[in-house]
Structure formats: C-alpha cells, structure tokens
Design a protein around this nucleic acid. Structure first.
Lengths: 120, 120
DNA sequence: AATCTTGTGCTACCTTCACAGCACAAAGCT
DNA sequence: AGCTTTGTGCTGTGAAGGTAGCACAAGATT
C-alpha cells in the first residue's frame, strides 16, 4: 500500500505531475494553494510547499507570490500516444483486477525490455 | 530520480515483483540469495530479507531454508493483456522521451479516469 | 554424521523526512 | 495606502526505516 492517500512530498508531487502531464489540469489552470493542499492531504505546509517547489523546478507550474500557482503554459502535456496507451493499460489492469502497484512494477520491468521483444 | 538503483526494501520488492508478474522470472525459477541481492544492490541483508519476506507473504515466491528462494508455481504471471499493454506503453514512453517516473505519474492519474473518457 | 549453504532474527546507531507553528515577503484587491 | 492572500523560510522535535554485524535454525550435500 502506497498510493491511497498521498502522505509525502514525493507522492503529492507525482499526483499533480500526473494530472498535468495527462491533461487533467490544462494550461494556465489554477492549482489549490499550498495551505489548501496541505489541509486536503493532511500534511504540513512545508511538505506541500516542497512538492510545489519540485514541480516548479521542472517547469510544470508557475508560481507568482500572491496570484497563486498555475500550470505553466506550453510545456505541460505529454504526447497523446503516451496518454492513450496509459489509459489502455489502466483499463486492462483494472479489468483484470491487477493492482495499480503491481501494474507499475510490471511497467518498470518491461521498460527496458520492450522493442526487442515480440511485438505481438 | 527514484528507479535507477534500488535502495530500499520497497524498491527491491517492486523490482522482483515486476520481473515475476511480467514473466521475466518464470515458475520455479530461482532468485539470487538474500546475501547476494544485498551485495548486488549495496544494501543491508535485513533490507533484502524484508523485500523477500513481503514477496513471500503475497505468495509470489517460495522460500525453503537451505534450498534458496524460487518463484512460486502457478500464481505468478499477470494476464497477458496487461503485460502487452505495459510493453506498448513503455515503447510509447521511451519513444517520446518521457521519463519512466513521469509515465508512472500519468498512469496513476488515469487509473480511475479511464473507460469514462474518450476511448479513441 | 559432519559440514556448508541459506534464510531468519536480533540489537543499537544514524540518517532522512515529515511535523508543527510561526514570522516574513511579495503581490493582488479595495 | 492599507489589508488580505499566498508562497517562502525557519527551528526544533519525532517517527520511520536503513545500516552493520553477528548468532541461530533448518535443510542440502558429501
């Protein structure tokens, strides 16, 4: 059990990162405030802030002090093919009652073994 | 950076779990010894042992004291469709120069949002 | 039966990371 | 200009988990 409720900076980071790169949060859309996020997930402000900081370092969000935090224009969304394949995998996994964590483990395992394998 | 070299019990767990469920390690195949794994990944024996313990709890491996540890017969492999979709996603991600970690974040994001979305 | 291999179980130490809670800085709003 | 919102930075505290190194248990091998 790891992914049920985000409880560390890395998990919150990954959560927003996924939302942005998958297009669930579009260009210029506003994120909750650091305090709000901290409350929502029951973590300290510093933890939420650290996640935001990391996202900003990677250019996924833009933060202007009193204006809040927004998805950075442009850089966000991952290529459509990746998103679609991710959807397909999610559907297959849930349909087969395979855990999200297990699915991720499988993905990690094949990450450097594809292309050289049977394509069908 | 998280997945380059496993450095915690959970990561080692996930690594073998992925190898098994993806079929890279087949039924009855032998895993390295706890000591060996500890050496390989530069972690303490206790850490490697913890990972093995977790895998055994989930019925993925069978450990008999002096005979070593082997992949449990039967339960191992995930449905082929999941493996194939995982391969496809890996191929798409690498081709598009999307990080493994980012791809995982995207997968997490769509995990409970598929099927209700535009299927094509 | 004797010995080697291999997994298990300790104990004590240390590093990492989240928490709490506040003070500060910068920019928007009226 | 003054107030409010919102992100940043700090310090000390505490829990979680990894490390090291060894002793033990149980089965395999000869």
């Amino acid at each position: 059990m790891t992914g049920t409720t985000p409880s560390s900076a890395d998990e919150i980071d990954a959560l927003f990162r996924g939302a942005i790169r998958s297009g669930q949060l579009g260009d210029g859309e506003r994120l909750p405030t650091v305090r709000q996020t901290a409350r929502d997930f029951g973590v300290a402000q510093a933890t939420a802030a650290k996640a935001y900081k990391s996202l900003e370092r990677d250019g996924l969000i833009v933060t202007r002090t009193a204006a809040g935090t927004r998805v950075a224009p442009g850089a966000s969304r991952a290529p459509q093919s990746v998103i679609e394949h991710a959807r397909a995998l999610a559907e297959a996994g849930e349909g087969a009652l395979v855990t999200l964590e297990d699915t991720i483990a499988i993905l990690r395992a094949v990450w450097r073994t594809d292309a050289t394998q049977l394509p069908t």
